[in-house]
């Protein structure tokens, strides 16, 4: 049984420290928790909440494939040269790099493929004919702040967009003087603790049983993102589809990445489905953990978590 979001463990009671504030809401198709890990006056908290809501709304209006009035929906209708939003550079820079590193497996051009698979605005979840996404070269020319489309294309920024929005929301909190926080969008989160505060204990969900965890990460002033196919799954597919095979990868059941930004951690959870970790480790600083189809575990040496496993396999 999948527990409802509300049955998730509540934040640890703050024994010695000041009262914290937590705000939960639904946005961009997932459940959010924005928590201040410090004292925040009510008026400041109210202003910060309004600003966060506005920031998310702006992001959705720019990048959501699921709303007709968004920038990317306009791109899906009309080719040409577009001015990107001011915040677009880190997002598109990373997509461009990962496109090359994963031989096109991580691509923003996957929107049409996801929609054809049934992952569309109406969540029709009925796969139609799946055709490979167009190649980036020849379709997109990216020179920030401009993106030029040779023809109308449906962009999907889901591989990294949510993580990036977590970073942007954290930035909003900081501008309101909230410097100790946890911003969690459905399990993808950024943590910034107060000085000498304990790390955040984050359970790593069992990919086959949402009522269990397979380990506990200790997150301190970093971001943690996870990906697994057990929730957004339909008709043998899930939210990750390999553009080359037009199937969802099945060799991994769950992937986690820890990095300094939620943007990077989120994007790497997708990239790790497609390329061995060392290829990514040559370019980015991150830790990773993978649970394979047979529930075997692989993780980088410094992944900040204690895992629950069968006795260690004999080593060389």
């Amino acid at each position: 049984m999948m527990p409802s979001p509300r049955s998730r463990p509540k934040p640890r009671p703050n024994v010695a420290g000041p009262a914290t504030r937590q705000w939960q809401f639904d946005a961009i198709g997932t459940r959010w928790s924005v928590e201040a890990l410090q004292v925040v006056p009510p008026a400041v908290w109210a202003r910060a909440r309004r600003a966060v809501a506005g920031r998310i709304e702006q992001f959705d209006r720019d990048y959501s494939r699921f709303r007709a009035d968004s920038l990317v929906s306009a791109m899906a209708r009309t080719a040409g040269r577009y001015q990107l939003p001011p915040d677009a550079q880190p997002l598109f820079d990373l997509y461009r790099e990962l496109y090359d590193l994963t031989a096109g497996a991580v691509t923003p051009l996957v929107g049409g493929l996801l929609a054809a698979a049934g992952y569309d605005a109406a969540y029709s979840l009925r796969p139609g004919t799946l055709t490979p996404p167009p190649a980036w070269p020849g379709t997109l020319r990216y020179e920030f702040p401009h993106l030029t489309l040779a023809r109308p294309v449906s962009l999907d920024l889901g591989a990294a967009g949510k993580g990036y929005l977590v970073d942007l929301v954290a930035g909003v909190l900081r501008t309101h003087g909230i410097t100790a926080y946890c911003v969690d969008a459905g399990g993808d989160m950024a943590h910034q603790g107060a000085l000498e505060a304990d790390p955040l204990a984050v359970g790593l969900e069992h990919p086959a049983d949402a009522g269990q965890v397979i380990g506990v990460a200790q997150l301190r002033n970093q971001s943690l993102c996870g990906s697994a196919g057990n929730r957004r799954a339909w008709a043998g597919l899930n939210h990750i589809i390999d553009p080359h095979t037009r199937t969802s990868p099945t060799h991994l059941r769950a992937v986690w990445a820890v990095a300094d930004t939620t943007l990077l951690a989120d994007a790497l959870t997708t990239a790790l489905y497609f390329v061995p970790p060392p290829i990514l480790a040559a370019h980015y600083v991150f830790e990773y953990a993978l649970v394979y189809e047979d529930f075997s575990l692989e993780h980088s040496a410094d992944f900040p978590a204690a895992f629950f496993t069968t006795p260690a396999i004999s080593a060389l």
């Binding site: 640890r12 955040l200 359970g203 380990g215 075997s296």
Partner: peptide, 27 residues
Amino acid sequence: GGYKGLVVGRNVDSIKLSRVSGSSLTS
């Protein structure tokens, strides 16, 4: 060195956690 055996689940309720991460929650 990367191979760590098979994961074993423990009930969420039995462990003190601040948050949980896995597949993204769906609204």
